[in-house]
Write a protein that binds this DNA or RNA. Structure first.
Lengths: 127, 127
DNA sequence: CCTTACCTTTACGCAAACGTAAACTTGGTA
DNA sequence: TACCAAGTTTACGTTTGCGTAAAGGTAAGG
C-alpha cells in the first residue's frame, strides 16, 4: 500500500502513481495535465499529494478525453464547476458555452446511436 | 452548380469542393483522408470525382472524428463495411473488433449522459 | 488565345498530447 | 548508514491532423 498511514477515513490521499495505476495512464500524463493547469495537487515537500477531490477532477479530465475534447476545452469545462459560488456575473456567457457544449454532446449521442446500429447490422451480416 | 451536366439521376457526382462546402471542411482535409487511405475517389484525368458512395464514406469519416477516433481507427472501422461480401473467414476476428468498438461507444454514451446531467445542474445553479 | 476559377502535387510548418532519456532528490527499509 | 524504489525537474523527440505556401495544370467563357 502506498500513501496510507493513519488519517481520517474518507479524506484519502493518493500518490501520482496510485492514480496512474487506478486509471491506467502514466504519471507523465498526470503531470502534463498539471502543466496545462487542469489539476493542482497539494505538495508535501516536493512530492505531489492528491486528494479525493483531485481524483474526481482527474476522472472528469479522462471523461472529457474519451469524449474527444482537447485539454484546453476540458479546462474550460472543469473551471465551470469551480465557480466561487458568487460569481454569476458572467452567467450569460457561461450559459452560451454550456449550450454549445450540449449541442455537441447531443450530436455525439446521435453519432453513437448511428454507429451502434450499423455495428449491429454488420454483426448480423457475419452469421 | 458544379459537376452536374446530364447523367442518370441518383448517380450523382461531386467535386472535392462540392463536398468540402457541404460538410464545412477544407479540400485539404479530404485530400488528407485520401493520403491516409480512408477514401479513394475516381479520377477523371487528374481531377477527383466523388460518387454518392464516396460521399457516404466521408460522412462516416466525419462522424468518426466527432466521436474522437483517430483517422487510423476510422479506417479500420470503415474497412469493416467493405467486406468483399464473401470474406467472412475472419469473421471471428471481426466480431471481436466490433465488440470492442461497441464497448467503447457504450462507455462514451455513459460519459455523455453524465455530462449532460451535470451541465443541466450547472445551468440551474446559474439562475 | 487569354483570363478566371478551380484543380493538382510537393513539401515544409505547427500545435497538441504526451513519450522518453537524463540527472537528481527523497523517504522508507535492510 | 547505505541503498533502492519511486518521486522530481528539464528538455528534447514523436505522432497526428491538418494549414499553408509554392508552382503549376485544366476547363469553360469571352
Amino acid at each position: 500500500m502506498s500513501g496510507q498511514t493513519a488519517q481520517s477515513i474518507s479524506e484519502k490521499e493518493y500518490t501520482i502513481s496510485d492514480l496512474a495505476k487506478e486509471f491506467g495512464i502514466t504519471s507523465r500524463s498526470i503531470r502534463h495535465y498539471e502543466d496545462e493547469k487542469l489539476i493542482c495537487p497539494e505538495r508535501r515537500g516536493v512530492h505531489r499529494i492528491y486528494s479525493a477531490r483531485d481524483r474526481v477532477r482527474l476522472q472528469l479530465i479522462l471523461r472529457g478525453k474519451r469524449l474527444g475534447f482537447s485539454l484546453a476545452q476540458i479546462r474550460e469545462i472543469i473551471d465551470l464547476y469551480d465557480l466561487p459560488e458568487g460569481k454569476q456575473k458572467q452567467a450569460k456567457l457561461l450559459i452560451e458555452l454550456i449550450q454549445k457544449r450540449r449541442d455537441a454532446l447531443l450530436q455525439q449521442r446521435k453519432d453513437i446511436e448511428h454507429m451502434l446500429k450499423e455495428l449491429e447490422m454488420l454483426e448480423q451480416k457475419l452469421d
